[in-house]
Design a protein around this nucleic acid. Structure first.
Lengths: 154, 154
DNA sequence: TACATTTGTATCGCACACGATATAAATTTG
DNA sequence: CAAATTTATATCGTGTGCGATACAAATGTA
């Protein structure tokens, strides 16, 4: 049989699985704040930048606007943020945290540390995690560059 | 500001993004076979094992049966496989490739190599990819073990 | 100023992913 | 053997993720 097609040989599958498992590991913490994982990501960038357009949130999270748009609408319904059309350029919708959204930051602050702890063991050192993080960031550049090229082909 | 909550500091986000980007990188190849990425994963294990129960496919792919079940039903509709209730244990549904499903293996065989090539650059060596793969497999063990523990708490 | 193009956002449809629940068959236990 | 429990699968509802499409505002151009 073609060894290349064995599940164990794939690089895609471990990354795919770890991604799902990490998201799952967040759930107990996020549940306390009634957040989903992508909603938490949106909050991460808004805690950092205060006000952003729908488009720029998508750019930072590498998500298309057709994913961000309903996501943000649900978050507005939950009272976490406000959407307001820009007066300078009426095509843009600016997103801003409400006080409720800002409040959650305190509750969220211990999460990254806790998540890291679940991962660190005799077999996985902090240096390994940082190594993987740096590697993943390189891959993101390559893959998203490649992605743009493929879209241009059409 | 709490540095821990900056998007750039997260380990989760790069993994999450790479996972989506890799899946996206597969799409041009899978499109030619009218497959989605999770459907491709199901084929990978069936090409390796010929016949498997719904449950054991889920175990290999770390997916719940409520994800696998409709996935396999769609694949049956597409004529890639057959579902057949086991006569020994009527609770089990055995999944078996059709000739059409087996045929696709030839077409798929160059895919892993091609995917790898899109990733390899001056900045990313084969050794790095293998390193990440091994690391991810360690993480899977830790995270899925942890996951089981959390479920027991309920 | 009219018209075409670009840009930012929203909508639609499909395919996961998964918790909760349902159902039926098999197994365990009193 | 009957009842309770476990096991295997399916169904339902919610939330992404994304390609395709729609649409309105802004911009460029003749």
């Amino acid at each position: 049989m073609n060894e290349n097609l064995k599940l164990e040989q794939q690089i895609c599958f471990p990354v795919y699985s770890v991604s799902r498992l990490i998201t799952k590991a967040y759930i107990p913490f996020l549940k306390e704040m009634s957040l989903t994982y992508p909603q938490y990501l949106v909050l991460l960038v808004l805690w950092e930048y205060e006000t952003l357009s729908v488009n720029s949130i998508g750019e930072k999270l590498l998500l298309n606007t057709n994913t961000i748009s309903p996501l943000i609408q649900r978050m507005e319904k939950a009272g976490l943020l406000k959407r307001e059309r820009s007066t300078q350029d009426e095509r843009m919708v600016m997103v801003k945290l409400t006080s409720k959204g800002k409040e959650l930051k305190k509750k969220a602050s211990p999460i990254p540390e806790k998540l890291l702890k679940t991962l660190l063991t005799d077999d996985v050192q902090l240096a390994d995690v940082i190594l993987v993080k740096d590697m993943m960031n390189k891959w993101i550049e390559i893959l998203s560059e490649n992605n743009k090229k493929n879209q241009k082909k059409d």
